[in-house]
Write a protein that binds this DNA or RNA. Structure first.
Lengths: 150, 150
DNA sequence: GACCAACGTTGGTTCCACCAACGTACTGAA
DNA sequence: TTCAGTACGTTGGTGGAACCAACGTTGGTC
């Protein structure tokens, strides 16, 4: 990744898992570069965006929705709370839970990061036409849906 | 990833970079589980397969072809050499270089891991028809090719 | 009231990707 | 031919992402 690939590994380059890996790796790099301007990382965005869109939720619930381990949610929410982007409050209805809510600043940051995400998205999909993008989205969605339940 | 996803994050679930990330993550998990039976990891397979298919190469060259940093190639080749799957020899034509070659045992292992890879591949792409698999491969290849030179 | 499940939290581990710096060796231009 | 620049292998880091085990607390159930 430190320079242009001269050629791909012979048989590997047609392997879907290789292509997926490389594409995702590339996307992650672009995304991480973009998010760096906000001094936040992928986990933070997933959580913040989910909170901003779907409203307050418990940490366990956030973890399930964002596909982030409970223990990692703790750390990420700590970061976000430390910046005042999010508030952690005990759930009066269930004293095991914390209710996490995005603050106004958090919602703003979510919007800004969303814009960054869109820009990166456009960058990533530049070589594909609109219908091709939709094709890709559809295929990957099918893949995920098949594997994510059972 | 530790249980079935109840629902995906609202707006995120249509984002190509999210889909790519999740799909690749899933593929990587399957692959890593498969490779664990060989007591080897992704880096090892990339290198071993490239050596077995394309013949001996220098470490820097391997790194470029497999998209692995030079410093990580060192460690992985150390592992492989320690198991007798690969041989490291000084290049008489350029004393900076090492020529890495797969041993017979290495070629065997590459074949076995290749079989594991195919199995995982089939598993991963189970929900897709043959033409859809080809579509996906084509789209991802286009994506990579566009981003990998300049 | 006992049992099991879920929650938040702590403190790990592994893999992957990447970077800086060093000494050695090659290469090309002055 | 010397010298600057580059490539190579190697060491020793960094950080993010994903994951796991265990604990005390709390809720629901039998």
């Amino acid at each position: 990744m430190d320079n242009a690939a001269p050629q791909s590994p012979a048989g590997l380059s047609t392997t879907p898992s290789w292509l997926l890996n490389q594409s995702a790796s590339h996307a992650a790099r672009l995304l991480s570069e973009g998010f760096a301007a906000h001094d936040l990382r992928g986990y933070h965005y997933r959580l913040l965006a989910t909170l901003a869109e779907d409203g307050p939720a418990s940490q366990a619930d956030l973890g399930r929705r964002c596909a982030i381990d409970r223990s990692d949610v703790v750390a990420a929410i700590n970061d976000l709370a430390g910046r005042g982007l999010v508030v952690r409050a005990p759930d009066p209805a269930d004293r095991r839970r914390n209710v996490i809510s995005a603050t106004d600043a958090g919602a703003d940051e979510a919007r800004r990061m969303g814009a960054t995400l869109e820009r990166v998205q456009a960058d990533l999909l530049a070589p594909l036409s609109a219908t091709e993008r939709e094709q890709l989205t559809r295929l990957l969605t099918r893949l995920l849906r098949h594997h994510s339940r059972h």
